[in-house]
Structures are given as structure tokens and as C-alpha cells.
């Protein structure tokens, strides 16, 4: 039987400690030990992208890291972005545009799109396709995902524009 070891990390903004076997991947740890199941496991060899999570502020594969390596790390999953404005915009447009069917790739796809919009001021269709190309989706054919990502970006830009305008007015 596997011995377990305590692992302390920041998970979705809170410091937590859980016991896990040394050979358990971060993805299994999140799902089985912690019980956060938005992160999915599609291949366990780092190719499909379903287990994508934020590790110290950058997206990474949850299956390509042992949980014990995450000691002291800042891990954020889809559950931890529920109040995030950018994520909410993405979720809204994924829903409206039917950018998901079975939903199994969706968490990973959303996190990747989230980092993309966070790192790029003016996303383009071609660049979005490229950025999302590490995440496998078998259902949609990708076009809806790309379009939903760009629609979320437009909405966020419009909101930011309004805020800038308001700020400008306030200053004036």
C-alpha cells in the first residue's frame, strides 16, 4: 500500500494541506484527494490538455507534475476562477456559442483561453487557433471555441473601454 505524505499548497487562493502518495499526479490529487473534478484526465501523458491548471500563474498540465512537486506552489483550477471576470466572460460565450459539446475538454480549454486573453491585448483568429492548439476537442471542430474566445475578448475590451471612459470623465 502506498504511504501518504502531507502536501501543503495554495489551492484556489487558500492554503491547504492534504495527504497523498508520492506517485500521485497533481491531476489525480486535485480530483481524488481534494475532490475538485473540473480538472479532467484525458491521456495522462501530457498531450490532450484536459487537465490544464494554473501553476504559479502559468498554465501547465496537471498530469505532468506529481502532487508532491506542488508543495508550496500556487495552484488554481477552474473552480477557483468562478469569480474571475475574464473567466466569466469566456464561460458566457462558450455557452452562448455552443463552444462545447461533451464538456470534457472544456475546463482545460477555458484555462488556456483565459491565459491567452490575459497575455494578448489584440487576439486574432489565427493566433487563437495556434494558442489553443495544445488542447484536444473531439466534438466541436474548434471553430466555436475560437469564436467564443474572441467574443469574450471583445466583450472584455468593450467593458475596459467603458471603464477607461468613465475614469477619463471622472478625472475631467
Amino acid at each position: 500500500m502506498d504511504s501518504v505524505f502531507p502536501i501543503t499548497l495554495t489551492l484556489n487562493g487558500r492554503t491547504v494541506t492534504h495527504d497523498a502518495p508520492q506517485r500521485m499526479t497533481l491531476a489525480d490529487f486535485l480530483r481524488q484527494t481534494v475532490g475538485l473534478t473540473a480538472t479532467h484526465i484525458g491521456c495522462e501523458h501530457g498531450v490532450c490538455g484536459a487537465c490544464t491548471v494554473y501553476v504559479d500563474g502559468r498554465i501547465a498540465r496537471g498530469c505532468l507534475m506529481f502532487a508532491i512537486q506542488a508543495e508550496g506552489c500556487d495552484i488554481r483550477t477552474l473552480e477557483g476562477l468562478a469569480d474571475d471576470e475574464r473567466m466569466q466572460a469566456l464561460q458566457k460565450h462558450f455557452h452562448a456559442r455552443n463552444a462545447l459539446q461533451c464538456g470534457f475538454c472544456t475546463s482545460g480549454m477555458l484555462l488556456t483561453a483565459h491565459q491567452y486573453l490575459g497575455s494578448q491585448e489584440e487576439p486574432s483568429r489565427e493566433e487563437a487557433r495556434e494558442y489553443l492548439s495544445g488542447n484536444y476537442c473531439r466534438c466541436t471542430g474548434y471553430q466555436a471555441i475560437v469564436e467564443a474566445t474572441l467574443a469574450a475578448s471583445d466583450e472584455l475590451a468593450a467593458k475596459a473601454g467603458c471603464k477607461d471612459e468613465e475614469a477619463g470623465r471622472a478625472e475631467a
Binding site: G49, V55, I59, A60, L64, T112, Y116, Y131, G134, N135
Partner: peptide, 9 residues
Amino acid sequence: IAHEAIRSR
């Protein structure tokens, strides 16, 4: 090289 989620690690 690969994809962003790999480049980060």
C-alpha cells in the same frame, strides 16, 4: 516547442 502549458514547465 510544444504548447504553452508545456513551455511553462
